[in-house]
Amino acid sequence: MSKLFVARDSRVAARSLDGEMMIMSGRDSTLFTLNRTATLLWQAADGVTPLDEIVERRICVEFEVDPSVALQDAESLARELANHEILQVSKEPILQKSAGASR
């Protein structure tokens, strides 16, 4: 099974407040609030760490979930965030000049 890589889109503004990650699309100013799982994925999405490693090291550590189920859910989530153009998904590492600012 090929690996997937995820990276924060550089065209968004993002900040964490009260444990909630809030992201605004620079394209159409839509505001997203991520849940805990999506926040973990977002924060770890550096473009070079494979998604399965993110799931294993960040999500499975935080939640008691079966790794294969968690990976499947994480892939669905990553593609959903990609549809909103706040995350990039690729089968190759994603090299960016600067990832989306995340405070």
């Binding site: 503004a13 009260d18 605004m24 699309s25 100013s29 609030t33």
Partner: peptide, 25 residues
């Protein structure tokens, strides 16, 4: 977080411009 969400939903915003989106955010 609710205050920020409510504020953002009421700020007048017209431009599709990444820099201005970040500024408003």
């Amino acid at each position: 977080s609710e205050a920020v969400r409510s504020l953002l939903s009421n700020i007048l915003f017209f431009a599709e411009d990444e820099d201005l989106v970040r500024a408003a955010f």
